[in-house]
Amino acid sequence: MSAIKSRPIYPGLKVDERAKRHLVAAEGEGALAVLEAFADAPDAWSRMTLLYTPGGSAPANHSETLQGRAPDAFHLHPTRQTLMTRLNALLDTATMGTRLYAAGVEGHIGEVVAAGLAHGVDHLSIRTEHRGSLARRVQCVHCKGFIDDVTISPVPCAHCGVPLFVRDHYSRRLAAFQGVSINAETPDEVPASEELYK
């Protein structure tokens, strides 16, 4: 179990041989997890809908490699946000026998799992693998704004400006760690930020 009891465990991608449709959402280095997991299941690619955004791995050009494996449908997205828009549209019309997979940074996995939950998919049924940076997605508990790719603590809220301590507490529904004011009791001081989650 993770040291943070509310933090999900990402056991790694494992192909569901019985799935009629593999719905795969990968970000950055998550492409390598997909290539490895599906290397021994050549038939699965013809039943795969693959969404990919290069994210932090743009120079590595995993998208050509993925496309080279000829998934049934391949969607290349410029950002995580655009990938999520497409994923939500696909989940709206997904049918029985669809298996959902997520690979990449934790913020990406979290958003995919939250989208699955919102569509009635049991979170434990989603196959996940963490690849890439340890950056966290954080929600400001005060203004409820989200901040992506957080590597430092405290981090100023991108929305309301409150300097946030990132608590070791994770919400699957919000796909984010909890950010709480670090200087509420010392309003005149803001501790220096440290890089913690690179």
């Binding site: 009891k5 509310s6 508990v141 409820k144 507490h169 994770y170 919400s171 699957r172 529904r173």
Partner: peptide, 17 residues
């Protein structure tokens, strides 16, 4: 503690902190 943050969590998760 925040209901908005913890809603949907299981027993071990909401006691994590």
């Amino acid at each position: 503690w925040s209901l908005d943050f913890d809603i949907g969590m299981n027993f071990m998760e909401w006691h994590a902190p």
